[in-house]
């Protein structure tokens, strides 16, 4: 029989060492964010390609999953929709006439033109957050495609979020429904400023919080909220969602309500990144 010559350390001490290491790491990553970047990108570069591959399986599975759960609904819906198509096509002709009128109004607003004028890059969502607590995802474009930190991300015609971290081949996006997200918004109709903040609990009902609207104004449900001029990270005039349920908050000075986002966050696939960072240099100078 050989005698064991291995050195054994009591796991207690390893635990203590690791926990201390965590605290140190936390302080370092908080205080000197840029020092962690090489380690982060090393982990990212190892994981992202694998995630890209598996993600396609995930999408297929998700389609299957939807297929079974919605099959019955779809059949019923199909019947209803066919009836609707007939009605709608008649209506459509009328609406097309209205469209010319609308285009003229749009020009007056001047907002949408600015909006379409932002340069955009399309990107694909690789994966979602591994926890049930946050709403962060990773897209497959990075500095190689000209992305930078603080660029705005859209899907369809609504705001999705903002890039919080960018690497060579991928970027991390924090969506507006994340519990930690705050966006300065403006009610389109009367330019009333407000703060749109994500809320994990409310998101179950498909809404997030809107706070800080002046207590004296009356705004009806369904008013559009767009990103505000005064925000230092979000470009102005991007549609965020629709306001509802406005009421006085506990301070009795301002009002709060809910916002239904335009974007369907449960099934994000393609997003657009606006490759223009809001120039807040002026603002920073003023703050100095």
């Amino acid at each position: 029989m050989r005698k064991k010559t291995k050195i054994t350390i009591d796991p207690k001490y390893i635990l203590a060492a690791v926990l201390v290491f965590c605290v140190v790491l936390g302080v370092i990553s908080y205080r000197f964010e840029d020092k962690m970047t090489p380690i982060r990108s090393a982990a990212g570069n190892a994981m992202i390609p694998m995630q890209k591959g598996i993600n396609s399986i995930g999408r297929k599975l998700s389609d299957r999953f939807d297929y079974f759960t919605t099959m019955k609904k779809t059949v019923d819906e199909n019947k209803k929709l066919k009836k609707e198509i007939a009605e709608l096509s008649a209506e459509n002709k009328l609406l097309q006439q209205d469209k010319y009128e609308l285009d003229n109004f749009r020009k007056l607003y001047d907002l949408d033109e600015q909006y379409a004028g932002y340069p955009k890059v399309a990107a694909r969502v690789i994966n979602g957050d591994p926890t049930n607590w946050n709403n962060i995802f990773i897209i497959d474009k990075g500095t190689d495609d000209g992305l930078k930190k603080n660029m705005n991300v859209m899907a369809g015609d609504g705001l999705v979020g903002i890039i919080t971290e960018v690497n060579k081949s991928y970027a991390k996006v924090r969506s507006i429904i994340d519990d930690d997200s705050n966006v300065y918004g403006t009610v389109l109709k009367n330019s009333e400023n407000c703060i749109v903040s994500g809320n994990l609990v409310r998101m179950k009902d498909g809404v997030i919080d809107v706070t800080g609207i002046d207590g004296n104004v009356e705004i009806e449900d369904g008013a559009e909220i767009v990103t505000s001029q005064i925000s230092d990270k979000y470009l102005p005039g991007i549609l965020v969602g629709y306001l509802r349920g406005l009421k006085k908050d506990s301070s009795n000075i301002t009002q709060e309500g809910y916002l239904t986002p335009v974007v369907d966050f449960s099934n994000l696939d393609m997003v657009f990144v606006i490759t223009e960072v809001k120039d807040s240099a002026e603002l920073e100078e003023m703050l100095k």
Binding site: C22, S29, I138
Partner: peptide, 19 residues
Amino acid sequence: FIDLLYSSVVGVSIFIYVL
């Protein structure tokens, strides 16, 4: 893995999982 790819502060998830 979670901290490096998703969190802003590295260490919190490691702490929880190690415990």
